[in-house]
Design a protein around this nucleic acid. Structure first.
Length: 224
DNA sequence: TCATTAAATTGTT
DNA sequence: AACAATTTAATGA
């Protein structure tokens, strides 16, 4: 995934629009770079856009008043996010931070509402996405308290390869072990150990600066 | 195109 | 957290 055009081509909601809708919607969507460590949006801000990840990697997290941070999920290229806040007309509930230099698509709130009011495919997409996310988060509640670090990392990685939420990506993902550590909330050393175990189990292949998934289904189930 | 160097990432302690 | 080894990317001959 490299260009805004490719992101839109890979996104189900955009594919299903008719020509007239496309002409109206696409020109309003623009792209903006975010440097590694930078915020795409902050907890407490009003939402002005719906966002997509053209390229890069984000984490969704919050910081408690005591200063502890919790990461909820990672967002790879192909992800669209922020609809929850737009739909409810609330303030953002999470921080979205770039784990590395990233390029983020912005769809203005007005366009989002226009699609919401007239496009069935767009509504269908949101419904599917919210449903898929719900499944992910319920899975996280389970593994957060029940599973050992290897399994936590396995499932954390599996979520990044959800083809419904993050289309347009192959079986390989450029992600460093340090970045995986940030997402899963474990040390880089522990990530390294876990990846070696998962490779022995033939679930994935460790590459320099990335991983290749060999068995997504078993990765999802790991530790169950 | 190839060799050299710097930077990033990995694997280990 | 620190270290050495490995891989990649960038540079210039």
């Amino acid at each position: 995934m490299n260009t805004l055009e490719e992101l839109l081509a890979a996104s189900a909601w955009a594919r299903d629009l008719d020509d007239q809708e496309r002409d109206r919607v696409f020109p309003t969507v623009f792209e903006r770079p975010v440097a590694a460590g930078g915020y795409v949006c902050r907890k407490g801000e009003p939402a002005r856009h719906w966002h997509g990840v053209v390229d890069g990697l984000l984490k969704m997290s919050t910081v408690s008043s005591a200063g502890k941070s919790a990461t909820f999920t990672g967002l790879p290229a192909g992800a669209w996010f922020g609809e929850g806040t737009l739909l409810k007309n609330e303030l953002r509930k999470y921080d979205l931070i770039a784990l590395r230099d990233s390029r983020i698509a912005h769809m203005p709130c007005a366009t989002f509402r226009w699609l919401l009011d007239r496009s069935i495919p767009f509504n269908r997409f949101l419904l599917d996405q919210l449903n898929e996310r719900l499944g992910q988060f319920i899975g996280m509640c389970e593994f957060d308290r029940l599973l050992d670090p290897d399994a936590r990392i396995a499932r954390c990685l599996a979520t990044l390869f959800n083809p419904l939420l993050y289309p347009g990506n192959g079986p390989t993902l450029r992600i460093s072990q340090e970045e995986i550590g940030h997402l899963a909330g474990v040390s880089r050393q522990r990530v390294n150990q876990a990846l070696q175990q998962l490779e022995r189990d033939r679930l994935l292949t460790v590459e320099y600066g990335g991983i290749r998934i060999d068995d997504l289904e078993r990765l999802r189930q790991y530790g169950a």
